[in-house]
């Protein structure tokens, strides 16, 4: 693992209790609009009338590879899980999402990937 941690053996990527890590970064920032919106979308989707349960969110995130799990920001993990689970549940399709992202990029005047 990174950050000087001991090898995790057969542990899941998320199962880190008791491992050796470095100093805790206690820095904080007020939540950004992106973070607040992803948080709200997730709460709506895991609510009783939503598309999936909180356990599905955990399962999706715990399936990320080690690099993504370690380095994606918290709400980046969440928004990626939203995409995975909404597609998995048949609420949206990858084609729909990719087409909309491309349209949004164009609208924003950004460079196409």
């Amino acid at each position: 693992m990174t950050n000087g941690a001991e090898p995790a053996g057969n542990r899941g990527i998320h199962d880190i209790g008791g491992l050796d890590f470095g100093a805790i970064d206690r820095g904080e920032h007020p939540p950004t609009t992106f973070e607040r919106r992803v948080d709200a979308l997730m709460l709506l989707m895991i609510s009783p009338s939503g598309a999936f349960r909180v356990d599905a969110l955990r399962r999706a995130i715990e399936a990320y590879n080690e690099t993504d799990y370690a380095h994606l920001a918290y709400y980046e993990k969440w928004v990626r899980a939203l995409r995975i689970l909404l597609v998995e549940q048949g609420v949206l399709t990858d084609e729909q999402i990719d087409a909309r992202i491309a349209a949004l990029r164009e609208r924003a005047g950004g460079v196409q990937p």
Binding site: L41, R80, L82, L92, I101
Partner: peptide
């Protein structure tokens, strides 16, 4: 990721 959030919200 922000593009993804906006796309998911809109859809």
């Amino acid at each position: 990721w922000e593009f993804l959030e906006q796309a998911l919200s809109e859809l």
